[in-house]
């Protein structure tokens, strides 16, 4: 990994699209499906995860020479759990209602494989600056993906967006979208869109290559 020189902006950008944690890597599905029933819940969960990602990335990167290989997982989990606990208190201090809505899923950020994955695969091998950029990119990508799912589910499932009515009276809400199974439906719809765009991109690239090949020959 050290061989390839990646520019700092690329380190940030890759989490948004090319390596989007939800739509491409399909990581951290538990919060992505469970707490995305409204846009505000999705946003809050995304931001909390982003904060934990950033802090865990920074700490792991700073301590990367101090933590021996054998004790790395326990150290990472300990660091992640600490910041999750901090976020838990912070959200309670901001709003009890929000804390009630997110429920047990704040504590479950600890086992979000995205965070441990980035700590293990990236932060432990890079300097703090790059680790932070990577974490920020992944966090923003995660938040945006959750937000997209949340918007779709809230509009269809409750007929509202951020609690504001989107339709005139009498709109038939799709109860299923608010239920956990609706998370899978919304996720599948977005995956369909994302994969369709990616395939178009890939086809365009291939055509471009073919044409370049023809010119060369």
């Amino acid at each position: 990994m050290a061989l390839k020189q990646v520019s700092p902006t690329d380190e940030f950008i890759k989490g948004l699209w090319r390596e989007n944690p939800v739509f491409i890597q399909v990581l951290g599905m538990c919060p992505a499906l469970a707490v995305s029933n409204t846009a505000i819940n999705a946003l809050a969960m995304g931001l909390a995860t982003t904060f934990v990602l950033l802090m865990a990335g920074l700490s792991v990167s700073l301590l990367r020479n101090f933590i021996p290989r054998e004790a790395r997982i326990v150290s990472y989990i300990c660091i992640i759990a600490t910041f999750v606990t901090c976020v838990d208190y912070a959200i309670m201090a901001i709003s009890i209602e929000l804390h009630r809505a997110l429920g047990a899923f704040i504590a479950l950020i600890v086992v979000n494989c995205l965070i441990l994955g980035r700590s293990e695969a990236f932060a432990s091998k890079h300097n703090p600056g790059r680790a932070m950029l990577d974490a920020l990119g992944m966090g923003v990508g995660f938040t945006v993906a959750l937000f997209f799912i949340g918007v779709l589910r809230e509009i269809l499932g409750s007929g509202t967006l951020f609690g504001v009515d989107m339709f005139p009276d009498g709109f038939q809400t799709w109860t299923v979208m608010v239920l956990p199974s609706g998370g899978f439906f919304a996720m599948a719809m977005w995956l369909l869109v994302v994969n369709w765009i990616r395939q178009r991109e890939a086809n365009a690239e291939k055509e471009g290559d073919d044409r370049a090949g023809e010119v060369a020959s």
Partner: peptide, 25 residues
């Protein structure tokens, strides 16, 4: 890895984390 360096890292991180949680709390 020597046992000492493992103890050092786990105890050190544990102490740091405990301190952080107490502060935020």
């Amino acid at each position: 890895t020597s046992a000492w360096s493992m103890y050092r890292s786990i105890v050190g991180i544990g102490a740091f984390c405990a301190l952080l949680i107490v502060t935020v709390f």
